[in-house]
Amino acid sequence: MNLAKTALSSALVLALAGCGGSDDDNTAKTGQFSLGVSDSPALATNVTIAFDRVVLKGSSESYTFDVTEEGELKQVNLLDYQGQEVETLVSGQEVPVGEYQMCIYMKNDTTGADDTSFVIAEEAMKGLISNSQGSCGNADSEDQAVKEEGRIFLNKKFPIAVGDNRFVAEFNLAKLQPPKGNKDYWVLKPTDVVRIENVSDVGTISGSVDSRITADCLVEAGDDADNRSAVYLYRAGATLDGSENAAKMADFRDAPYTTLETAPIASARVDEEGKFEFGFVVASDYALGYTCVAQKDDPVADDMNGEEASFFLFDAIDNVVVEENSTTEVAFGSN
């Protein structure tokens, strides 16, 4: 892995391990930078991103990390890294302590070629692009490759300090926009899809869905053979139906939410054994909603309101407390 002091490139999911000199020595303090990828799964069977490089943009200098393997793009199928699983992109690279922004550069592709970035859904392979392009804070504005690649610009600053500083960039793939109209490819909007979390501040939610809950939900849904189960994560206080004192659990959408609705933070697939997991959840209080019609949640449209509403949440759990470096166990249908 090559390190160059240049204008930024980009990064996807990250883990940081920091170290540095003592306060009474004269050496520059540094932290070791490591980067990996993880996701919140979409309903596709394969979401592969071809990574080229990662860039950290500091206040005075930027650091570029080549993540290619023997000159070839590093392809990662994010669906192989769900829950707490992480694929490392950068490992053990020293950078000065301080605040940084990060950019991740990926190979955009609109054709569905299997050697770049692509999505497989309903047995159809389509290309995948980031709708953001360009430099990372103008640091690499003259780099032609940067101008042509997709950019994932994580502009929220985060610190690299002395000691352990492990971060993860999570992809909420449920927010990927599917092919539409004359755009026969998938679109990743970085501001909607990717978030960075400090691993030292996060925990895990691990849970199950009783088969009776799923069966009852399918009856209400019409028992479509294509129905797929998922669990949605919300801030504490969200409820299935909402009230004057509690916001209603809503779907993913680009359309605006009302003041009586709350947007989901992430979603997790329920596997064939009724199990699900959210990894890298910031320590706080949450609520969960279960659905058996996840395939009907269009990431752009409002699918819960109006005459054509097709998506619903069937069951909920509140008072889900997540603590740092621990796993919270929950179960739908435990009573």
Rank of each mutant, 00 (worst) to 15 (best):
Q133S: 14
V90I: 12
E85V: 14
D226K: 11
R269Q: 12
P299W: 04
V97E: 06
A17G: 08
Y286D: 03
T48I: 15
F252D: 01
D109G: 10
E72V: 07
V90C: 07
F153I: 01
R253T: 14
P264N: 07
A121E: 15
V97C: 10
S334E: 14
E307T: 15
G21F: 04
G306N: 13
D140F: 01
V13L: 09
E149F: 06
S40D: 09
I160R: 03
T110G: 02
T239E: 06
S9M: 00
Y105D: 08
C292Y: 01
L128M: 05
S132A: 07
N155P: 00
K175S: 04
T262G: 06
A145H: 15
S22Q: 14
K126P: 04
A263K: 04
N172G: 05
M249K: 07
D201W: 00
E324G: 01
Y257H: 12
Q75C: 10
S132E: 13
L56G: 04
M102P: 01
D24C: 09
N227W: 04
D80A: 11
L89A: 12
T262Q: 14
K183M: 14
D66N: 14
D315T: 11
A113V: 10
G36M: 05
P179H: 04
N138S: 13
V202G: 01
E324D: 06
Y100T: 04
R53W: 07
N2I: 06
P159N: 08
A246M: 11
Y105V: 00
V54F: 06
T6N: 12
D210L: 06
D115M: 02
V202E: 03
F312I: 00
N165G: 07
D24P: 02
D39N: 13
C19I: 08
S91E: 11
I49R: 02
E87S: 09
T258V: 13
Y234D: 01
D271L: 08
S9Y: 08
